[in-house]
């Protein structure tokens, strides 16, 4: 049984299709990144998964259960949506205590203290939420989401509004939860650097359709894993170099930006490419070899036209 299973999921609002045949699965203990531009359908997918919206067709299951009808199964899921889910007029402590009660947490007091300390909020525990900064509220929101030690955690932009230090702390908490507690995390985020650091697998969605679903490494390698950037001594040579390399089978793509030529290629062919350029009598000012980041892959995916996954 998969921890999260989305199968051929479609969702329409008044005839407008928001999700179209989306399918992916998440395994136990995995930190899974769900990426896509604004309005791509990430939040709608999470809402269907949480039983807040009914699918038009297809299935969205958590540990084999439909959360729309299985109240008890919702108790094993922690959620942080765009809204922190906190009550402004209650204190940090009272908020955690309330959610602890809702989820039937035993030893609530200890758990609440432990979480407030872990998130650096122990000295603000009697402060009303409306007095806390956005970053503190977000941290308290994450603490709230894991108050009942869930098996599965669904997070929508968890680090938005957090400073770099707090972002790092959240990343460490997520890694720790996944590694030590085998907690499954579905992380919807725009922060590609964060996803690359934390997630083992990702799905990319655009306009309601899944564009990619694979491990981060496979996506990077599969879509031109390495890029060689050459800065030429003469700008007019750049087009000629791009043309020359077009016939090289190890080169998957080239682009020209002034005197700079960016060459996507497989990892083994760097020396051969450099040799061909030098043989052609082109002067090279600088050569820089780099792996493609998840951000490069993501930008390619969301810029691509068409509907294929």
């Amino acid at each position: 049984m998969k921890e999260i299973e989305i199968q051929d999921l479609c969702k329409s609002f008044e005839g407008r299709e928001v999700l179209s045949h989306v399918s992916f699965t998440v395994e136990k203990g995995e930190v899974f990144g769900y990426l896509g531009p604004n309005g791509a359908g990430k939040t709608t997918t999470m809402r269907v998964l949480l039983g807040l919206l009914r699918p038009t067709s297809g299935k969205a299951l958590v540990r084999g259960s439909d959360l729309a009808v299985d109240d008890a199964a919702r108790g094993s899921v922690g959620v942080l949506m765009e809204n922190d889910g906190l009550y402004d007029k209650l204190t940090a402590w009272q908020n955690l205590d309330y959610y602890g009660r809702l989820y039937g947490v035993r030893e609530r007091s200890e758990r609440t203290s432990q979480l407030l300390s872990a998130f650096g909020l122990a000295d603000r525990r009697h402060e009303k939420v409306f007095n806390l900064s956005k970053g503190m509220r977000r941290k308290l929101g994450i603490a709230r989401a894991i108050i009942h030690d869930p098996e599965i955690l669904l997070l929508d932009e968890p680090t938005s509004g957090l400073d770099p230090e707090a972002q790092r702390m959240v990343r460490d908490v997520l890694k720790d939860l996944s590694r030590r507690e085998r907690m499954t995390v579905l992380l919807s985020s725009h922060n590609l650097d964060e996803v690359e650091r934390v997630c083992s697998k990702v799905a990319v969605i655009k306009q309601g359709r899944l564009r990619a679903f694979d491990t981060v490494e496979n996506l990077r390698v599969g879509r031109g894993g390495h890029a060689l950037t050459l800065v030429l001594t003469k700008e007019q040579d750049a087009t000629m170099v791009a043309e020359l390399l077009r016939h090289d089978p190890s080169v998957t793509g080239t682009s020209v930006d002034g005197a700079r030529v960016i060459i996507d290629h497989d990892n083994e062919s760097t020396s051969g490419i450099l040799a061909s350029v030098v043989r052609a009598g082109v002067g090279i000012e600088e050569a820089l070899k780099a792996s493609r980041s998840l951000e490069d892959v993501y930008m390619d995916l969301v810029r691509e036209q068409g509907t294929g996954a």
Binding site: G75, V77, V79, L80, M81, N83, G85, Y87, Y103
Partner: peptide
């Protein structure tokens, strides 16, 4: 209006 209700609806409560 604030959207807090969404989190409450995700809880095990009927």
């Amino acid at each position: 209006q604030s959207g807090v209700i969404e989190t409450l609806l995700c809880s095990p409560l009927d």
